[in-house]
Simulated scan of single mutants.
Amino acid sequence: MAISLRKARTIIRKALEKGRELDLKPLSVVVLDAGGHVQAFEREDGASPGRFQIAHGKAHGAVMFGAPSSVIGEIAKERPHFGAALSGVYGGQIVPVPGGVLIKDKKGAIIGAVGVTGDTSENDAAAALAGIEAAGLVGVV
């Protein structure tokens, strides 16, 4: 199963709605497919222009490594040399903090990832998860 543009837009819309519900700072949300390709991206008014790279780094690390960005962050803390090597392997395109959430289908297959940035990392992850669940998919934080 691939992430359709319709599902990607639902994830983004619902993640942004969750951000407004929680009164978060302006968010930026990217949805990647299982190959790490951008399916959709939106940046709320007031979000800084560099947020695409941060959101992308969270999601890219998650989908390429097969684990949420929060897990990558814990690995990097425990084994800094491995964390640095991962960053090098993926051309520096990993942001190892919460907010990069894996997307699985109902059968458990990884079909992509969402990256959210703009507020605290934990709030970013909560917004991502809300978007994924609203699209009828399973998020792994």
Rank of each mutant, 00 (worst) to 15 (best):
R79C: 09
A85P: 02
G99H: 07
L32C: 02
K25N: 10
G19H: 10
Q93R: 12
G46M: 02
A84N: 12
K77R: 15
H60K: 13
G108V: 01
V141A: 14
K106N: 13
G100S: 04
V95S: 12
F65A: 15
A62W: 04
F41K: 03
P98D: 04
P49V: 11
F82D: 02
M64F: 13
V138Y: 03
L137N: 01
P98I: 00
I103F: 07
G61R: 00
I12V: 05
N123Q: 14
R9E: 15
L137G: 02
A40E: 11
A126I: 13
G66K: 06
V138H: 01
A135Y: 03
A84S: 10
L137F: 02
A130I: 07
I72F: 01
V116D: 03
G100V: 01
P96T: 05
D124N: 07
L16H: 14
S4G: 10
G73L: 00
A2T: 10
G35S: 08
P49L: 11
L27D: 01
E17R: 11
E21M: 09
A113P: 03
G46Y: 05
V114P: 03
E133G: 07
P26D: 06
S87M: 09
L5F: 08
D105T: 06
V140Y: 05
L137R: 01
D23C: 12
S28H: 06
G50K: 02
V101H: 08
G19Y: 13
V30S: 04
K77W: 09
A2C: 06
V31W: 03
G57D: 00
G66S: 08
A67C: 11
G35D: 11
A126E: 14
D23G: 09
R51A: 11
V116Y: 03
L102K: 01
I111A: 13
S87I: 04
K7Y: 02
Q53R: 05
Q93I: 07
G100Y: 00
H56D: 05
G115N: 01
A85W: 05
G92P: 01
L27Y: 02
L32R: 06
R43N: 01
